[in-house]
Amino acid sequence: MTILKDFLLKELRKNRTLLCIGFLLTLVIASMACTLVFQTSMRISFLKWNLVWHYRTVFWHGWLETFFISVMALMLSCFFGTAIATIQRSSIKLLRFAMLLVIEIIRGTPLLTQILFFFYVVAHGIGLQNRLITGIFILSFFSSVYIAELIRASIEVIPKTQWESAKAIGLTTFQTYWYVIIPQALRPLLPSLAGQLASLIKDSSLLSIIGISELTLAAQQVNATTYCTLESFFPLALGYLILTLPISLGSRLLERKLKV
């Protein structure tokens, strides 16, 4: 079995046509599955889009909330991520160690656990009542740790000779980062950063657990009232795609622009 798998993988890597056929095959199977689902639901009852249409404002408000949470968390996590990456490169050993500990704790626990812990323990402890702000902060912290690791990795791949060269022509540390390191680090960073930001948007759906009325909670509410499962959750998926697709497209464009 493993021999067959290895062989197939090798062939796939070698042959792009095979890859295309594989992709097409997946597409065909997926569309067949979709048709089947549609047909079944059609047979049981006609799709009640009109019923769900009635709740369009619920979806719209949920989507807006998700959009707001995502944008805020995106900005905050980029800011915290840069801060963590900077601390990790600091010359104070204790600071680096403390940061490493925080990173390991956040990376080693599920986001859902963190949401519950921070909301019910930390936020309640410090008297933070606003669910939305708490949610945004939890999501930002979680994501910033991953972003910091991406930043660290993309800085580390830059050859030492570049630092040396910058030093030799008389640049300060800040100038070295600004004119030499960051422009070079951006190219390997962008695709992975876009991936991380897209998953942040998707992860925001977990905030429904603490009652933030974002898109997922809205869809759940519509489903609970109308019992129209497909009609409730289809807009949910679409709503997330509207947010994530521009990010991956934008990153691809930027990547091409920044090509050396």
């Binding site: 000779t161 060269s165 022509i169 422009p183 070079q184």
Partner: peptide
């Protein structure tokens, strides 16, 4: 001091971007 002198390294070390 480094601002006053010029250095050329073994590898060209130009900034690739």
């Amino acid at each position: 001091y480094r601002q006053k002198i010029g250095v050329v390294f073994q590898q060209q070390n130009l900034f690739p971007h």
